[in-house]
Design a protein around this nucleic acid. Structure first.
Lengths: 230, 230
DNA sequence: CCCTATCTTGACACCATCTTTATGCACATA
DNA sequence: TATGTGCATAAAGATGGTGTCAAGATAGGG
């Protein structure tokens, strides 16, 4: 289900109507997780690894300030406070405890969404990029760069598409038909030859000895598999 | 001057009483710089290199949203909006333009200070210089200056936009459609030719041998990539 | 109003890539 | 041994992407 939504939002609020409301306005854009108490919220923050947390200060089991501090012990995920408390001291206390933003209820839906976007934007630029590596082969999907034995390899679009597919499913066997469908589309399901040619070209570029592949393993009669380190 | 204060705050506001007020409440904690207009604010942002900017949206000479966008062209310094505008649309517009926070006047002094602290806390360990250099090429995004082999290069607005996009994503491949969308807008997605012409012109200005580009690398079938030093 | 810089568009040569065709190899089976 | 199947590689033609020059079109400033 968490397929095309890029970011996860964790809502920690003890009032069911508010949880439902927030889920409704956010679920189109984000994957929403819900928690109804401080302790379950802390657990959810650890397990669901959200990209932003919306936290109500008035929880029955654990004070909101305490929730902020405990999360800040191990995570720098953006925390946006949603609270009925309007007093300036409350805001200052929450912000100084480690919160990133503070909205007083009631708040505008669009403003909340914009503040979530602003928080995500900030953390987006400081997250390390995903990198696949196995032996001498390294693939950086975020910058579309491939290196083998330290040398930069230039791949054609089709070759890169195949390699990207293999990297994102590293270690698993991808059937011929699966690769053909993903890279060429359903029209090429009966043309396994074009895949062999491209695998061959790909091996010539990234394998030190293309006739004895170290990285792209042939699974006879089934498909191909990318070797992983471990 | 007062070098014992760790952080610099730039205040951009056209009303003298507010500038004075902000200076009063902030100067104990921060080094405060003041600007009274949009253009002078932009200049001050480049010269004083503040750690946080307090910006009034209602400037007489340049719209506040525009100020945000121009700063975001080269800097990710936290921008906190201080405005009399209460409308949700104004907040959303400012936040989506790149602002980090939005306070409606009148605001509490302690809350402002806490929000400034929150902003500073987030950016404590990330201060990228708006300077790019690779080989003989140097780009200063804060002053919009480009030099190649020591000579200053004059670029057209479109050429600079492309180069800025490449610099802010240096090392990564930018697809044709991404560049077209950012520089020309979505209407030009089906006009890749205009991009090629501009890349060609750009290369003629910054590359020593435009037929063998050292800096702007073509990724055939995909897009372009700016070479990095490392 | 004209001049200049810039942007856009068209034409064309060139090159990379994709697909297809052809061939060889390994292995299993009759 | 003969034969078929699946896989790997090489090569060639077709296709489409890419770089460059140059000619209008447009806008902004003097």
């Amino acid at each position: 289900m968490n397929s095309n939504k890029l970011f996860r939002v964790l809502v920690i609020d003890d009032e069911l109507p508010i949880r439902r409301f927030l889920q409704t306005i956010l679920e189109n854009e984000f994957t929403v997780h819900l928690a109804e108490g401080g302790y379950s919220g802390l657990a959810a923050a650890a397990t669901t690894k959200p990209d932003v947390i919306l936290l109500d200060l008035g929880l029955p089991d654990l004070d909101g300030i305490e929730v902020i501090k405990r999360i800040r012990e191990w995570s720098s995920v953006p925390i946006i406070i949603l609270s009925v408390r309007e007093r300036e001291d409350d805001k200052v206390a929450a912000l100084d405890a480690g919160a990133d933003d503070y909205l007083s209820k009631p708040f505008g839906v669009n403003e909340l969404q914009a503040r979530i976007r602003a928080s995500l934007r900030r953390t987006l630029h400081q997250t390390p990029e995903p990198l696949f590596s196995c032996g001498d082969l390294a693939v950086d999907l975020s910058s579309r760069r491939v290196t083998a034995s330290g040398r930069e390899i230039s791949l054609t679009p089709t070759e890169y598409d195949i390699l990207r597919l293999l990297v994102t499913h590293a270690g698993k066997v991808l059937t011929h038909s699966h690769i053909l469908k993903e890279v060429w589309g359903v029209g090429y399901l009966e043309q396994p030859h074009v895949l062999r040619v491209n695998i061959s070209n790909l091996r010539r570029k990234i394998e030190s000895d293309p006739s004895r592949p170290k990285y792209i393993i042939t699974e006879p009669g089934v498909g191909y598999r990318l070797k992983t380190d471990d």
